Computed example of a mutant assay.
Amino acid sequence: MLDALLGRASLKERIDELEEENERLRNRYEAESERRSEAATARQDAEERVNRLEDRIAQLEGELEQLEGDEAGLSVRRRDRLRGSRLEAVVDRLTSFRTDPEGALTAILREDEGSETLAEAFDVDLETPLGDRAALVDEAAPCVLCLDDAGLIAAALEPPAMPDRALADDSRIAWDDRFRLEREWFLPTGRYALALVRTDLFALGTYADGDRVDYRGFESDVKGNHSKGGFSQARFERIRDDQIDDHLERCREALAERVGDDIDRLYLVGQRGVVETLAEDASLEPAGTAAVDATGDPKSALEDAHRSFWTAEFRAF
């Protein structure tokens, strides 16, 4: 009765309502925090599964190639996709090899080059150390071939950043007492930038020895592959092309703004046609390009693209 007369009853009711609302918000916050934690854990688990599946796929591809080679009577001794510490260990072993003067061949083979190219253009006979297995080199190009004259080492690596295609022939084929391999062909060294470009997404990372130190990314509103809402196909395609052009212009501006003299090298990855168009229109000279299938938001897609790019195909003959 007294509370009602003093107006405290309504205040107490309001306090009870606010406390209930506060409790609901606290429960919602705790549920959201738990959901975010579970999402982060799920993402880490998914990344681990992806890595395991990629390794398994590479293993199965190697086994398939071996089976196919067995049918033809030839097969590589080993085939694998290497990255990170595994790739670094292989490169270190190859570069530490020493032999007699002109006993180690390093050959940078472009696409569609192989044993015949080496024999006819450079007078390099692969049949002496490799025998019939010399034919397997043709399937490995483009690659960097490492072979000693005794046939003890016969391996090919397709590096993430193939050496400059403008290299003179006498620089592509070299006999020495060691294999001439540059670490920057295979491993993330120095200060470089890697840009992921799709028709609707752009992500640019600046790295120092493989560690990202700067980032810029965005997504653009680009229509899908099929028209909706009554658009004619021609009109739909014109609108989509204009949206893609606007997106690529944003990409060019971001590259011009972020990639400066402090960057040693630029790598472009993503959708093949988009990468080629951007490199040409922006007058870029990337140190390497690659088609990668990286999905998700810009930052996570960039992480996937960076890991995928710095992966090398390895074959032992």
Rank of each mutant, 00 (worst) to 15 (best):
S10A: 13
D55T: 10
S300N: 11
E38Q: 08
I108W: 06
A287L: 09
D242T: 15
E237C: 05
S232C: 11
F122Q: 10
E113T: 01
L87S: 13
I244M: 03
T206Y: 01
L11Q: 14
G131M: 02
L248R: 10
G7K: 08
F179A: 04
F231E: 08
E47K: 06
E88K: 15
R77G: 07
S115P: 01
S75A: 15
E184W: 14
W175S: 11
R240V: 14
T117F: 15
T99Q: 05
E313T: 00
E182H: 07
A141L: 07
L147F: 10
D3C: 10
D176R: 11
A256E: 11
L167Q: 06
Q243K: 10
W310C: 04
A154W: 09
R35S: 06
A4M: 11
E88Y: 10
D246Q: 12
D148F: 00
F309H: 13
A4N: 13
A291I: 02
D214A: 06
P298D: 04
A107V: 02
Q271D: 06
H226A: 13
P298H: 04
R14V: 05
L130Y: 00
A39T: 12
E257I: 01
R81K: 04
R81P: 00
L60S: 14
L109R: 06
Q243L: 04
L74R: 02
E127H: 01
T295R: 03
E71V: 07
Y207C: 03
L167F: 11
E113K: 13
V222I: 05
L187Y: 11
W185E: 05
R178S: 11
E19G: 00
R81F: 00
V91G: 09
D132L: 15
L255D: 06
V91F: 08
